[in-house]
Each structure stands twice: as structure tokens, then as C-alpha cells.
């Protein structure tokens, strides 16, 4: 398991909740909030797990930024950040995938 989404934001579900970042403030938290082995797996209350998160992240800085690069975005299938005249909405394939077609 790799994503603990409990601090997912309504506005940007793939990123940290901006307001969650406020709560603990700082870069370490941003990465920690989406990582199972820092929060979810420890079963510790959020703030307590966060207190020790810096060390863990400090040993593992490369992995967390993988998907912030053009290569990473391509790998994961992110196709946004391009201008378009209209917002097309979900494709027929996506609707079908969700049983909405």
C-alpha cells in the first residue's frame, strides 16, 4: 500500500491538503501526509507520527519527487496542464469504467 489519503484535499486530491500543511507547517509534512509507512502503518495519531517524520523523509527524498517531473507525470498518465477551449469532461471509456455509461 502506498497512498494514505486521509489528508487529501478537496481541491487537489493528488496533493497534500494545503490546509493540512498549515496544521503542521513545513515541507516534511507535505510528503508525510501521503505516505502509508509514516502515518497509516504506524497507527499513531497524526501529530505524533509527524513528529518523527523528518528523519524518515530525510533518508528518502528522491522517491517522493519522482512524479513532479515531466517524465514522472508521463509515466503515471497525467495529461493535464494544457490549455483547451472547453472542459471536455470524462470520456465514454472513463464513464464505462465507473458504470456510468
Amino acid at each position: 500500500m502506498l497512498t494514505n489519503m486521509e489528508n487529501t484535499s478537496a481541491e487537489s486530491p493528488n496533493r497534500i491538503d494545503r490546509r493540512a500543511a498549515i496544521k503542521w507547517m513545513g515541507a516534511v509534512v507535505a510528503a508525510a501526509t501521503v505516505s502509508d509507512n509514516l502515518l497509516g502503518a504506524t497507527k499513531e495519531p497524526g501529530a505524533k507520527a509527524i513528529a518523527g517524520a523528518g528523519k524518515i523523509i530525510g533518508t528518502d527524498p528522491v522517491l517522493n519527487k519522482t512524479y513532479t517531473t515531466p517524465q514522472g507525470m508521463k509515466d503515471v498518465g497525467y495529461v493535464g496542464n494544457v490549455p483547451s477551449v472547453d472542459f471536455a469532461g470524462p470520456t465514454p471509456e472513463a464513464l464505462k469504467h465507473l458504470g456510468l455509461a
Binding site: 500500500m1 502506498l2 497512498t3 494514505n4 487529501t8 484535499s9 478537496a10 481541491e11 487537489s12 486530491p13 493528488n14 496533493r15 497534500i16 515541507a27 507535505a30 510528503a31 508525510a32 501526509t33 501521503v34 505516505s35 502509508d36 509507512n37 509514516l38 524518515i56 523523509i57 528518502d60 522517491l63 517522493n64 519527487k65 519522482t66 512524479y67 513532479t68 514522472g72 507525470m73 503515471v76 498518465g77 497525467y78 495529461v79 493535464g80 496542464n81
Partner: peptide, 15 residues
């Protein structure tokens, strides 16, 4: 919020 939005730091977790 849902969806395949722009990845950021932490996307993909660490394990």
C-alpha cells in the same frame, strides 16, 4: 475533490 490531477511531492508515497 477527485481525479487525475497534477502530481506533486509525495505522489506515489515512499514504499
Amino acid at each position: 475533490g477527485t481525479g487525475r490531477r497534477m502530481p506533486g511531492m509525495g505522489t506515489g508515497g515512499a514504499s
